[in-house]
Amino acid sequence: MELATLDQILEGKGKEPFDVIEVLQDIQQTYRYLPEDALCRVSEKLGIPLIEVFRLANFYKAFTLKPRGRHLLTVCMGTACHVRGALRFLDEVLFQLAVQPGETTEDGAFTVETVNCVGACALAPVVILDGKYYDHMTPRKLRDLLNSAREKDKGGL
């Protein structure tokens, strides 16, 4: 996929203050996080106080100010998943990747996040890797999943 540069994003999207969310989304997609410089530019370009941009970036979970890994692994911690052992499963995830929730693995491959129910409770426990849902997770399935993602990573690079 062609990724737009910051200038392209700022040129392409509107220049009104209310366009800010859209612009931030594009930046998030391009860089996988919201870099400080980019937010300063957004603030100048759209005429929004920097603190407002910062506040928005903090408010929405879809935005992060820390660089995210190439893959985003979201572990559901909702009620149904909890009952089916999401807590233990999360431990497994954190153990296999050696990170804490919200952190990124050293090689920059995975970022782990937790979420409260993704609306797929029948499939509990659920994880989402880059937008794709994986059901009835077990430590084994997880290992396979991570491995295949790593393989693809290597092939793709």
């Binding site: 937010l39 603190i51 407002e52 941009v53 903090n58 408010f59």
Partner: peptide
């Protein structure tokens, strides 16, 4: 407008942009 409220719920707090004085 150097500082403002950031975060929501019980995490709401006063902060400077990127936590440094602009």
């Amino acid at each position: 407008k150097s500082l403002g409220f950031v975060g929501r719920g019980r995490n709401r707090h006063v902060a400077l942009p990127f936590n440094k004085r602009p």
